[in-house]
Amino acid sequence: MQFYQPTSMREFIELSSSLSDEFATFLAGGTDLLPRYERGQAMPDHLIDLKKLSDLYHINIKDDVIQIGALTSIQVIQEKPLFQSEFMALHMAAHDFAGAQIRHRGTIGGNIVNASPAGDLLPALYAFGAVLTLIGPDGERQLPIQDFVLGPGKTALKQNEILVTINLERTPYKSTFHKVGLRQSMAISVANLAFVYSEKNGVFDYLKIAAGAVAPTIVTLDKLTSTILDNTSTPEDWPLLIEADISPIDDIRATAKYRKQVVNNLVQAFLRRELTV
């Protein structure tokens, strides 16, 4: 296995272009990749470690947007006050993420590209409407996260293209996150939910809900939230509206029925608390 550690974007582009016919894999924190090799998946012939690309660690705070480098660790997202004050759901997802050793090493970019239906940062990123910047031999492009994740482990990344930045619009909205797992930490989510909202006197003027581990990709509960926002649904309608956007499966962690119930309970508890109905 050839190992490469490009130290600049230019070096990276040159390298990835020269390997364009080869099977190359990118390495960030390795917390998804290494367990796969331990379980017997073949290691690649070319492994490109991204960790010396210093641009990928920057967090730029602009007036209307924050730009998070793809190599930002889960720990940094948990600790940086900016996330707690403006992107609470993302902070909470990072807080409930694995244990310290994995948070130190795992990255936001790895969580997105891994495209697990249960990836814990994803619901918050969907609910905040994250836009991703990708760079490859053909140049730079931007994609909304819901167009980037295509299915379990599948993304819109082209060959030798990498995720460089996660862009989040700065808004005055409040947010929160819930994770249900088989134990409090170090457990893959049975369901996870992010809520981004703005509410005055028991009426929502903004509401976005994203749910994980209940469909092949993260889903936003748009049927529910649009009817709440235009006031065309009543609490009796909520369960069916919620179920219209999810398609959970049975697996070793939980049954589809249980997942449906959990999402229903959490979403309804949130709505009832905020609207005090």
Partner: peptide, 12 residues
């Protein structure tokens, strides 16, 4: 920082 050495290659 604490890390799991089973999930890291020595070259890294």
């Amino acid at each position: 920082q604490t890390v799991n050495s089973c999930l890291i290659l020595a070259v890294e």
